[in-house]
Computed example of a mutant assay.
Amino acid sequence: MTFRLFPLLAALALAVVASSATADTLLMERTQKESAMALPTRGMSMNQVESRYGTPRSKLDPRGGNKPQHPVINRWEYDNFIVYFERTHVIDAVAKRADASELGPKPVN
Rank of each mutant, 00 (worst) to 15 (best):
M1F: 11
M1Q: 13
M1A: 09
T2F: 12
T2Q: 07
F3T: 02
F3E: 08
F3H: 12
P7S: 01
P7A: 01
L8M: 13
L8S: 09
L9R: 10
L9C: 08
A10S: 06
A10Q: 14
A11G: 03
L12A: 11
L14I: 04
L14A: 10
L14Q: 05
L14N: 07
V16S: 07
V16F: 14
V17H: 10
V17E: 08
A18W: 14
S19L: 11
S19I: 03
S20L: 09
T22I: 13
T22G: 08
A23L: 15
A23W: 08
A23N: 12
D24Q: 15
D24R: 15
T25C: 04
T25A: 06
L26E: 09
L26Y: 12
L26H: 12
L27T: 15
M28K: 15
M28S: 13
M28F: 12
R30A: 14
Q32T: 11
K33R: 14
K33N: 11
K33G: 01
E34H: 04
S35R: 13
S35E: 09
S35L: 02
S35K: 12
A38P: 07
L39F: 00
L39D: 00
L39S: 01
P40L: 09
T41E: 09
R42Y: 08
G43F: 00
M44E: 09
S45L: 04
S45G: 04
S45R: 05
M46K: 07
N47W: 01
V49M: 03
E50A: 05
E50N: 12
Y53C: 07
Y53P: 03
T55A: 10
T55G: 03
T55Y: 06
P56M: 00
P56N: 01
P56L: 02
R57E: 04
S58D: 13
S58K: 15
K59H: 04
K59D: 02
L60T: 05
D61V: 10
D61H: 09
D61A: 15
D61C: 05
D61M: 10
P62A: 13
P62N: 11
R63C: 03
R63D: 02
G64A: 04
G65I: 10
G65H: 10
N66R: 05
Q69G: 09
Q69A: 13
Q69L: 14
V72Q: 01
V72E: 03
N74T: 14
N74M: 15
N74A: 11
R75C: 06
R75K: 08
R75Y: 02
W76K: 02
Y78W: 03
Y78Q: 05
N80E: 07
F81M: 04
F81P: 03
Y84E: 14
F85S: 00
E86N: 04
E86K: 08
E86S: 09
R87E: 10
T88D: 12
T88C: 01
T88P: 01
H89Y: 06
V90A: 03
V90K: 00
I91E: 03
D92P: 00
V94H: 07
V94R: 15
V94L: 11
V94G: 04
A95H: 04
K96F: 12
R97L: 02
R97A: 03
A98R: 08
A98Y: 00
D99S: 11
D99L: 02
S101V: 07
E102P: 02
E102C: 11
E102W: 15
E102Q: 13
G104K: 02
K106R: 10
P107E: 03
P107T: 09
V108D: 12
V108L: 13
N109P: 01
